[in-house]
Design a protein around this nucleic acid. Sequence first.
DNA 1: CGGGAAATATAACCGAAGTTAATGCGACGA
DNA 2: TCGTCGCATTAACTTCGGTTATATTTCCCG
Lengths: 240, 240
Amino acid sequence: MSNAFTDRLSGYAPLSDADVALLADACRNVRDVPAGHHMIREGDSPDPVFVMLDGWACGYKMLPDGGRQILAFMLPGDFCDIHIAVLKEMDHSIVTITPAKVATLPRKQMEALVEAKSNITHAFWWSQLVDQGVLRAWIVSMGRRTAEERIAHLMCELYIRMRNIGLATHDQCELPLTQLVLADAVGLTPVHVNRVLKGLRLNKVMELSSGALKIIDPVRLAEIAGFDGNYLHSRLIKVA
Amino acid sequence: MSNAFTDRLSGYAPLSDADVALLADACRNVRDVPAGHHMIREGDSPDPVFVMLDGWACGYKMLPDGGRQILAFMLPGDFCDIHIAVLKEMDHSIVTITPAKVATLPRKQMEALVEAKSNITHAFWWSQLVDQGVLRAWIVSMGRRTAEERIAHLMCELYIRMRNIGLATHDQCELPLTQLVLADAVGLTPVHVNRVLKGLRLNKVMELSSGALKIIDPVRLAEIAGFDGNYLHSRLIKVA
DNA sequence: CGGGAAATATAACCGAAGTTAATGCGACGA
DNA sequence: TCGTCGCATTAACTTCGGTTATATTTCCCG
């Protein structure tokens, strides 16, 4: 009865079989959506909460000049936005990057879950805190890291997150991001992303091609990124 | 019985007099701390939750190379970090910028508040969401805005937040940040911050001196910043 | 299998912000 | 009252990453 979502939450609080069943049941309403499908648009009034069960999505904000800044990547098991119906209006948009399976939890059900089971509340809180930690790490990257460091850091983040949900081998994982998407995420131009990627490839640090990330020299990569995975608070692996 | 904290939360959920009294009582334990006092250091295991009742603080992360990135400013009424004791280890530090009055809420009391009163829980959630919105806005700034735009945007944010808690006049507010602190916040060098500030002053947009921000041309400032205050979800003024 | 769009790759040039360094100016304590 | 320390200011030079433009490759999809 478990799925990517219950797996993730189980890493954040000790959930009983009943809790897991409850959560799994809550996301029984699953939709298959194609790549490039908007789940939420800025300005929408949020109703259901979305949970990624399979595939990638990202949250982003457009600027008046047409630029786009990606704010976060959502992987299987992640909440898309855990607002719990408190906002009048979404302040950003969410779109799928690959074809995806998305569970739709009506807000009432979310609220019921939070009220009823303190374990689940706890797991939601924790999830929220981790997401916030990721946002903070992005701010640090954008503010103080060079282009190469930023990209290396994002690769570390995504690789570890993929590993935490069992979707990475020891040196490799799927990474279905074009250089344009990457550029929108790290606040660089696609041209410069290409230059940096070339550098990392030539220096035998990592390779990114045909939708997959291959880490050749993990130590060097983490060194360049100044990566400290602590902020991901990833208990999953240790528990499992 | 109200204070800066209960005022802020009242803007997020309808709190009864009893709720307010409960919250005010929860932060009866107030400490006066000097400027530059560390409330939380990265790596600490968090115990109590801190609430700013007066003065300014900021959260930041140090980089291996000695650089510093400020992640958020905390104003009167703000939670310093609403982790509710869920983390093993803080992933960033929090330090006062001015002399401040800080309330210390033991984690047990926080948990009790959350469990007991759904209004209060709701207000905490909302507060959390606003903070997250601020983080996202910072990412957009760092990723996609020029130096001038970034500084203009931060000034807009801080002015509006000060206004929301009744600490700004129609064109002015206290802003006790040195150019060095500002630089650490917007991800620029102090030298460049100075250049930009000079430009804004010469163009009669705004002035920043002796700890105060004076907005001369608010329309132009918001224009430069591409500021849309929506993300602050500031219901306070409208309700009051 | 072949044509077309999207994604990647490269090059030449430009400009915003970083670096380094020197100077000015208060505020505060001795 | 003076000296000092931190902050603000300014200048000269450098560099990282942006811009624009043009291949080239990949990968769909008929």
